[in-house]
């Protein structure tokens, strides 16, 4: 089955893509770029770099912009899925949803209306096992946003390796924080994945941080040989 992966640039959509590749054919990546920083569905820092990640993966990217207003976003998602079907003949959609019933149900509804299959291979994943598998499989993931105590500015730009994962475990035990950042505590950016032909080098980035809320703005990045 030819599939399109709803793609944010973060670890969950990359991991879902990798899972899908083991079973089916991933024909394209699909990104909905929200202009609204409060968007429930699609806002994420560095979304514009999805094109670079798609290039690293050797996959075409379908990119659709949305003003990011609640109901309009769904029409924009529908527009993106229709474009992916028209250009790449997708029969189904893959998402990186783990726990969010809100997000999962909305994508399920749009897919059903369009007659597309919907796959959520990370649904209700065991967070510990998922993070271990992510690192073990060779994904290289950088923290690109923090939105919760106790994360300070030093977390921005850190790679989630085994040492960082140990620290995240300790934080998850002591604070209302999920290990995967599924509760919106963390945003991530993937610089390398097992299906990337080249990896991403962040050449220039700046940090914007205040009161446990911050983002790593990647100003310049390029592809380098693995």
């Amino acid at each position: 089955m030819r599939l399109g992966v709803l793609f944010s640039g973060g670890k969950d959509s990359h991991f879902a893509c990798w899972k899908a590749m083991q079973n089916e054919e991933v024909a394209c990546l699909i990104t909905v770029v929200s202009k609204n920083p409060e968007s429930y569905m699609f806002h994420t820092p560095n979304i514009r770099l999805a094109a670079l990640q798609a290039e690293a993966a050797g996959l075409p990217l379908v990119e659709v912009e949305t003003a990011g207003e609640k109901e309009e976003e769904l029409r924009d998602l529908e527009r993106a899925l229709l474009a992916a079907r028209e250009r790449y003949g997708i029969e189904g959609v893959v998402t990186g949803a783990i726990l969010s019933v809100y997000q999962a149900a909305r994508v399920q509804r749009v897919c059903r209306e369009l007659g597309l299959w919907c796959f959520n291979p990370l649904w209700l994943a065991d967070q510990e096992a998922y993070m271990e598998e992510l690192i073990g499989a060779g994904f290289r993931v950088v923290i690109a946003g923090v939105f919760s105590a106790p994360f300070d500015e030093s977390w921005l730009g850190r790679e989630i390796d085994r040492r960082t994962l140990d620290e995240l475990r300790a934080i998850a035990r002591n604070y209302q924080v999920t290990l995967t950042g599924e509760g919106g505590e963390l945003e991530t950016f993937v610089v390398d994945a097992p299906f990337f032909a080249q990896r991403i080098a962040i050449e220039e980035a700046s940090k914007v941080y205040r009161n446990h809320n911050g983002v790593l703005r990647i100003e310049r990045a390029g592809l380098v040989a693995k």
């Binding site: 899972k19 079973n23 796959f119 959520n120 291979p121 649904w123 209700l124 994943a125």
Partner: peptide
């Protein structure tokens, strides 16, 4: 199948 992770594994 890819749906197994979503409907059976949980």
């Amino acid at each position: 199948s890819l749906s197994r992770d979503e409907f059976v594994a949980p």
